[in-house]
Simulated assay, not measured.
Amino acid sequence: MKIDLLCHFEMDAGFPAHYEAAGFALHFALTPKDRNNLPADVAAKIRAVLTVGSIGLTAEQMDAMPKLEIICAQGVGFEQIDIAAARARNIQVTHGPGTNNSAVADHTLALMLAITRNIPDFDHRVRTGQWARSRIVTPGMFGKKLGIIGLGNIGMQIAHRCAGGFDMPVGYFNRRPVADSRYQYFDSRQSLARWADYLVVATPGGKETLNLIDAEVLRELGPRGYLINIARGTVVDTRAVIESLNNHTIAGAALDVLAGEPEVPEELVGITGNLVLTPHVAGRSPEAMSNMMKQVLENLNAHFSGQPVVTPVPA
């Protein structure tokens, strides 16, 4: 008999077959309406949920699935899963640390170069017959100062790429210094932003980091500084970014994530020249997606065979 698994997102081609071969019967709830109004016959048999940190699972949604035993967050984030509610109901929760680190770090460098060298705008101009009028001078990235908010696994990979490939001095802000790190520690967001040419946000989402990058931090970053966000949209105050870009009080921003995504504020859509947007795809390389699927299956198989899960969320 197959174990009923509820998924909150569309799977990549070929992935459903892997879950089915592993003994799972897939059900999908792709919208908030679907997740809050599961058919009673489906909700009654769900034993596992596969979600992502930005979607999560509420206590009320858990209550609708009386047989629920395990929630798996694909990827490292789990900020919208009600962990306290899950533990009160003896529901196991796992996540996927390390599965997409390389992909996110690669995408970060791509965003940094794209906003620095004006790549999207140059591409548009060449395609619209503006070659001769487009050959303006743009800055370089080599040797500039990189500030990282959140020097975890992904932040460390970004630091290594920038320090090793672009000879960039690296500083970071964390709740506490990282032991044995060769990078410079700053004890406040503001002081790091004041020092940095690039401010990369690589911290987890959730209530503790809500609007961590606010108007004050952006003022410290200044008119020669670039903001790069590959973490969660909620970590950055979107309104402050819009005002900073429109007033040119920062040099530019490159954002892979937005608060309220997939909705994009009209004010952001209208900003050109000093803004690059991508649709939360930093972690979506073929290798990363395969790694995430394999880790989810490892956790599911461990749980349903009576073994400890591989990657439980931190206590």
Rank of each mutant, 00 (worst) to 15 (best):
R89H: 09
L258N: 01
K144I: 06
L5E: 02
D214H: 12
A17Q: 14
D187C: 07
S54L: 07
G260D: 06
K207D: 15
V42Y: 02
I70E: 03
I91Y: 11
D167S: 14
N247I: 00
N100W: 04
T209H: 14
Q80N: 15
F304R: 08
A22M: 05
L268I: 08
P265V: 01
V264M: 01
G260T: 08
E60R: 13
N229I: 06
M65K: 07
T58N: 14
I115W: 01
A64H: 12
Q74T: 14
V235D: 05
N229T: 10
F28K: 07
K67R: 14
S134L: 05
G273M: 08
E266A: 14
E243I: 04
H107R: 00
A251D: 02
P279A: 11
E220V: 00
K33P: 00
V264H: 01
R175P: 02
N90S: 15
K67D: 09
L50F: 09
D121R: 15
E266T: 10
L275G: 06
N211L: 03
N118W: 03
G306H: 13
F166D: 02
D63W: 01
R35A: 06
L68K: 07
A84S: 11
Q184A: 11
S102T: 15
T58D: 09
R127I: 07
R176W: 06
G143V: 02
F122W: 03
A88I: 00
A29T: 07
G225N: 08
V178C: 01
T94M: 12
G306K: 09
S244K: 00
F173R: 04
L268F: 08
P314E: 13
